[in-house]
Write a protein that binds this DNA or RNA. Structure first.
Length: 427
RNA sequence: GGAGGGAUGGCCGAGCGGUCCAAGGCGACGGCCUGCUAAGCCGUGGCGGGAUUGAAGUCUCGCCCCCGGGUUCGAAUCCCGGUCCCUCCGCCA
């Protein structure tokens, strides 16, 4: 959520900055300005009436105690009470409308974000290890996975439909090894605290992180219990401290969490239909930081480092891209993607997206910190990033480590998690 | 799923229609006092609006006793709806 005061004072500037995202929010901004104006008008009026009622009511109490008659005053206050009721009702409606409009505005892109339309305008910041040449034709992971009997697409679909898959044997073990490797790296070497919270959350959580109200169609929803399945652990973990005032000395909070992620992929019909790239349920290790306002960009760089370190240690060629304004997520002010090279597909695939949401989510969830003892609370900054998406990383390992005979060499860092296995199948 | 109990300031805890701008205690912070420490004394909540100022600030009003409605001249207190927590029973990995 943006600052209403900023919108009130500089609506033109806000409109302009939002336009960089490629959509026009002028109408919503205008609506906000009008409703905010009306809201403050009503406040002045109704607060004045309430003041009178308070004063007179006290007087009535005293008169009654002294045995005097207060019928005239009570009569007058009854009509004042009715006016207050009327204004309060209107105020509620105005505030409701204002809130709803505010929730529809995305975050403002940071000044360092390149202006652009879509992914073609993203900027490659750096590349780690150029894609290596194969002296044979590398296969895509779905072929490798099926041939080796470690990814089971057809039975995934049998149970749950399209865009669901299963793992067997070495595949399942590799998935588990990747999760443990990532969690250990981030907790032991990067200073994150591991947490594990429910996959089902109440509506205020996705509202706080920005998936709702606009993107409800992308999530699974359990109507009977009014619970949403998280599309990423960002939703549960960022909300951990909602409605709290944190101590600046305790910041930054750095969390890492494994979770399953659930996405309806409603608008993706026919896209990425092969393999494990775009599915309804996948595993992810997520990084979340809650920081002081001044430090969030520094922390964003650190988070990208922490996430890309996973790809490095796995020996996966990858590159970091800075998303342009048109490709930025709803809640984000600045985002870096990490993309690994898929030799079988001969293209880069996103395995992480690291975003600084500044105070956008913090406002929605009323997450604050006190800069110094006695100082006024400020909204915290929140960051999130994958560290990494596990299913896609597994696919990348299969594709990058495939041998001419179709076997897979296991990256060294994963061997301790797989009983020292060096190759699959063991020949 | 059934029955019952509860939610008050950082914490404990009183309050049952009008001196509640919430008693009292504990803690934290600031100040006074003081060889030092302790004790003692004084002060210190959040959100929003308005006025004033170049700004920090100051003044002022409203709201906040879980949340939302209602009754009343007046609600922490009464009524209705909801959320969460606890206890017992049932079911259960």
């Amino acid at each position: 959520m943006l600052d209403v005061r900023a919108i009130r004072e500089q609506p033109k500037k806000i409109k302009e900055r939002l336009r960089a995202r490629g959509d026009n929010y002028d109408e919503i901004v205008d609506r906000i300005v009008a409703l905010d104006e009306r809201r403050r008008q009503i406040l002045v009026e109704v607060e004045d009436l309430k003041h009178r009622r308070n004063v007179v009511s006290k007087q009535v109490g005293m008169m009654l105690k002294e045995g005097k008659d207060a019928v005239a005053l009570r009569e007058e206050m009854r009509s004042v009470g009715e006016q207050i009721n009327r204004l309060d009702t209107e105020l509620r409606q105005v505030e409701e409308g204002l809130e709803q409009a505010m929730l529809l505005l995305p975050n403002l892109p940071h000044g360092s974000v390149p202006i652009g339309e879509d992914e073609k305008d993203n900027v490659v910041v750096r590349t780690w290890k150029e894609p290596k040449d194969f002296d044979f034709e590398p296969k895509p992971h779905w072929e490798l996975g099926e041939r080796l009997g470690v990814i089971d697409f057809s039975r995934g679909a049998k149970l749950s439909g399209s865009r669901f898959y299963g793992l067997r044997g070495f595949g399942a073990a590799l998935e588990r090894a990747l999760i443990n490797f990532m969690l250990n790296l981030h907790t032991r070497n990067h200073g994150y605290t591991e947490v594990f919270f429910p996959f089902l959350v109440k509506p205020h959580c996705p509202l706080g992180t920005g998936q709702l109200p606009k993107f409800g169609g992308e999530m699974y929803y359990c109507e009977r219990d009014d619970l949403w399945l998280i599309p990423t652990a960002e939703v549960s973990v960022t909300n951990l401290h909602r409605d709290e005032i944190l101590n600046a000395d305790d910041l930054p909070l750095k969390y890492v969490s494994y979770s399953a992620c659930f996405r309806r992929e409603a608008g993706a019909a026919g896209k990425d239909i092969k393999g494990v790239i775009r599915v309804h349920q996948f595993n992810k290790v997520e990084l979340v930081k809650i920081t002081e306002a001044e430090k969030s960009y520094e922390e964003l760089e650190g988070m990208v480092q922490d996430a890309s370190r996973v790809a490095e240690l796995l020996g996966l060629p990858h590159r970091i891209t800075l998303l342009c304004t048109g490709d930025l997520g709803f809640a984000s002010a600045k985002t870096y993607d990490i993309e690994v090279w898929m030799p079988g597909e001969k293209r880069w695939r996103e395995v992480s997206s690291c975003s600084n949401c500044e105070d956008f989510q913090a406002r929605r969830m009323n997450l604050r910190y006190r800069p110094q003892q006695g100082a006024k609370p400020r909204y915290a900054h929140t960051l999130n990033g994958s560290g990494l998406a596990v299913g896609r990383t597994l696919a990348a390992v299969l594709e990058n480590y495939q041998q001419p005979d179709g076997s897979i060499v296991i990256p060294e860092v994963l061997r301790p998690y797989l009983d020292g296995m060096e190759k699959f199948p063991i020949t």
